[in-house]
Amino acid sequence: MKVALFLALTILGALGATAAAATGAPPGLLAGAATLAFLGLASAAGATAVALHAPDDLHEPRRARGPTLPSPVPDDGVTRRVFGRMWFAAFGAFGVLGLVPLISLARRPGRRVLTGWRAGLRLVDENNQPIRSDRLAAGGIETVFPQDGVNLPEAPTVLIRIPRELVTGAVPGDRAAAAGYVAFSKICTHAGCPVALYRRQAHELYCPCHQSRFDVLNGAKNISGPAPRPLPRLAIDVDAQGYLVARGDFDAPVGPDDWDRVR
C-alpha cells in the first residue's frame, strides 16, 4: 500500500514537472515537481527493500590472494640483467621522443606583457574617451587605459588624485603631479587580479582577491598581504590641450613575476 502511494507520487511529480515545463511555469515549480517525483521513487524503492525482509547474513567466500603465475625467465642468449636494461632503455628512448610533441604543445611559447603605454599617449577611460586634467576631484579615482588599448590585458591603470602636497617621487616640472595625479598599474603583482578598491582616508589601494594593500603616498609600496613588490608606476603629464598623457611605460614589469622574468 505504502509503495503504491509512493509510486503514485512519482507519477504525479513527473507529469507535474512535464506540465510545468510545457506551460513555462517558474523554474521553482518545475524543479519542485521533479523533486516530488524523485522522492517518490526513492521512498518506493526503500519501502520495497524494507518490506522484503531479506536475510542479511548470507555468506560468500573470499578468494585466496597471491601471484597466479611464476615470473618467466627469458631465454635470449643474454643475461637477465642486460635483457631487462635494454627493455628499460628502449622505453626510455620513446619517452625522450615523446617530449617532442609535449614541448611543441605551447603554440606560442613565452609571454608577452601588453601594457600598450608609451610616451605621449593619452589616458582614456573604458569608452576610449581622453581624460582632461580637471576630470577628478581630490580623492577621486578612475581606471584608465592607453588610447585605443582598452582591451590590452596589462594596460589597466588606476589614476588617483590626491592632495598635491602629498605627491612624492615626481619628476620636476610634472604638471600632472603638480595637480595631484598619480597613476599605478591596476594588475596586482601577486596573482594578476585587478587592484580594484581604494581606501580614500588611508590612501591605500586594496586587492579584493587576496587583500594586498599598497601605499599610494609611497609609490604604491606593498605594505600588507601576499604581494611581493610595489605596483608599477606610470609617469604622466598634461599635454598642451589639457589632457593627461603618459611619459612612457611603467617603471617596472606589470603583474606577477615568473622564472624567465630576470631583472
Binding site: 524523485f38 522522492l39 521513487l41 521512498s43 518506493a44 524503492a45 526503500g46
Partner: peptide, 12 residues
C-alpha cells in the same frame, strides 16, 4: 532496490 533509493534521493 537500495541503490535505486539512493539514486532517487540524490536527484531529489
Amino acid at each position: 532496490l537500495r541503490t535505486v533509493a539512493v539514486l532517487g534521493a540524490t536527484m531529489a
